[in-house]
Amino acid sequence: MKKIIPNIDALNIIEEGLKSGSSVRITVRGSSMSPLLLDGVDVVTLNPFIREELKVGDVILFRYREAFVLHRIVDIQGYSAHGGKIITKGDALEQREEIDFSDVVAVAEVPKIGLIKLSLRRGRIFINRIILHFSRLLK
């Protein structure tokens, strides 16, 4: 039987593992990073990180509004030894989040997906959207 570990419990285990220098493997939840990462399908490895080495393009796990989120860094603003902001965004979303460096929990190692598989995933998502659109019209 599959069981989903509540966000806050999973975060505690993740933070403990990372503090001890271990990496942590988790199954992705949600579709904000599709088509690269699919809900319940893809697994990412979370690793400890060095603040100075965070860069645009990295996929990070961070605390955001009492939950934790796995999105991509799209901008780093006003970086200094004691401040700066990170702008993140899910690959499938338009909205962005603005977070502090202290909100970052880990850097994610994402599975390598070839262009063909990625294109197939994009195609499937597009078709599902069309089906959903028409099913709503028919209601």
Partner: peptide, 8 residues
Amino acid sequence: AGVDLTKV
């Protein structure tokens, strides 16, 4: 290999 939360 670290903590594996995919196989709990």
